[in-house]
Design a binder for these strands. Structure first.
Length: 417
DNA sequence: TCTGGGGTCCTAGGACCC
DNA sequence: TCTGGGGTCCTAGGACCC
């Protein structure tokens, strides 16, 4: 037998569990996981959505991503606690430490999900993967206080589907020979990569379960859904063969972006430019920290009616300079904004390249100086905190001088950079 | 004050070139 | 005296994930 053995580890209601564990460790008398509770953003700053829910909260029909007010309507005595991203990073790291005792091929998929390639542990562990997974799950529960679901199979897709089959605190296998029995009866929406839009399309084609999808003529799927059709058909048959990408070697960073919902509607160019600057400061810092330059700048706008659009521009010369990116971002904004009140702004850079052989533009003599300034500011912020230096324009403004991620405390979340 | 923030990949149309 | 045809680059937008 030549097949691989892959585990997928998924923290149950991650943010909520971590808040609950932290509270218990600090003297709380109740366990948030046993009550209708959520982790929710701050409504006053218009970040009021549900980030995680307890199992009792789920019974009220509360869904991740829905507005906190709407969740409260469903359950009037709902407990709402704020997110604590630094805590989440610590919890995630602690879990990783345990996982790495069992395999050197651990891929961090997100803050609360990992893949492990356990193939080479075959001989070492005697091949009883269910037992090993149970041991890992129990160790995390006993040593760290939160529960996980572990899925076991021969590839990442099936392992991930498996860990979804039972929660909390469970180990589930989904080997190829179990697909028909365990996966095909599920609604097609449960398949990885089948979102709302695809579900609608598939339903309109008479496809409701993963089994229906698996038994549809692939040429028909490809005709209707292009390359997505091919991928979904393969997934419905459990076919997927990407490698577990050991952590540390981040596969490849394609772009760096930050965005923010502003606590009030922005209705003038000056304020919008300030927000863009606060975002570019963060993006630029991350770019330089990764020793990248970018060749593409993108600005996105979301109006108070929640309509989004974006504009992008390819640069003549790659740059990592805050001011250069900022100027381009302003140009993009000015040429795309239609004048509606703005709720949310984003800046993203991509088309990255290394910064070791920077091509100096003959026309920009200030560029070297700008680079030195950027580096100096980065260093001061690293050393003394992100708010130790900021642009005078933010004094007496309602805006934070830096925006994106959790800038108050390095590092920026959801990014290794 | 009802709807966050960070990503990736794909598609389609237009410009432009030979 | 219709108007081919391929290729690449650029841009906007949509879909998905956590």
């Amino acid at each position: 037998m030549n097949h691989r053995i892959i585990f997928h580890i998924d923290v149950n209601s991650a943010f909520l569990s971590w808040n609950a564990v932290y509270a218990l460790q600090h003297g709380a008398k109740v366990d948030l996981r046993e009550l209708p509770s959520i982790v929710g953003g701050n409504q006053a700053t218009r970040h009021g959505i549900v980030l995680a829910k307890s199992i009792p909260a789920k019974k009220y029909g509360i869904q991740t991503g829905e507005p906190v007010v709407s969740a409260k309507k469903k359950c009037p005595n709902l407990i709402v606690t704020p997110p604590d991203y630094l805590l989440y990073m610590r919890c995630s790291e602690a879990m990783l430490e345990i996982l790495r005792e069992y395999s050197d091929k651990v891929q961090v998929f997100s803050i609360d999900e990992c893949f492990m390639d356990m193939t080479c542990m075959r001989r070492l562990l005697g091949g009883d993967y269910y037992k090993i997974a149970t041991e890992i799950k129990d160790r995390i529960k006993n040593e760290l206080g939160f529960t996980v679901s572990i899925g076991i199979s021969t590839n990442k897709l099936l392992a991930k589907m498996a860990s979804d089959l039972k929660k909390p605190d469970a180990v589930v296998t989904l080997f190829p020979e179990e697909i028909k029995e365990k996966m095909w009866p599920l609604p097609v929406r449960d398949l990885y990569m089948c979102g709302e839009a695809t579900e609608k399309k598939l339903n309109s084609m008479g496809i409701y379960t993963i089994g229906d999808l698996a038994q549809t003529e692939p040429r028909y799927l490809i005709y209707k859904l292009k390359s997505w059709g091919q991928m979904l058909y393969s997934f419905a048959h459990g076919i997927e063969n990407s490698e577990v990408n050991p952590n540390g070697s981040i596969p490849y960073i394609k772009g760096i972006g930050n965005s923010c919902t502003i606590s009030f509607d922005v209705e003038d160019y000056e304020t919008a430019h300030k927000v863009l600057l606060s975002l570019v400061e963060t993006v630029g810092m991350r770019l330089r920290r990764g020793n990248f330059c970018c060749r593409l700048v993108q600005v996105s706008i979301k109006t108070n009616k929640l309509i989004s659009y974006s504009h992008q521009k390819k640069l003549e010369v790659p740059t990592d300079c805050t001011n250069a990116i900022y100027e381009e971002a302003c140009r993009l904004f000015d040429s795309s904004w239609k004048g509606e009140p703005i709720r949310h702004l984003g800046v993203r850079v991509s088309d990255l390249c290394g910064n070791d052989f920077i091509q100096l533009s003959l026309f920009d003599k200030n560029w070297e100086k700008q680079r030195l300034i950027d580096r100096a500011v980065d260093e001061i912020r690293m050393k003394y905190g992100s708010h130790s230096v900021f642009r005078a324009g933010f004094l007496h403004s309602r805006l934070a001088p830096l925006q994106g991620g959790i800038v108050e405390d390095f590092p920026v979340m959801s990014s290794i950079l």
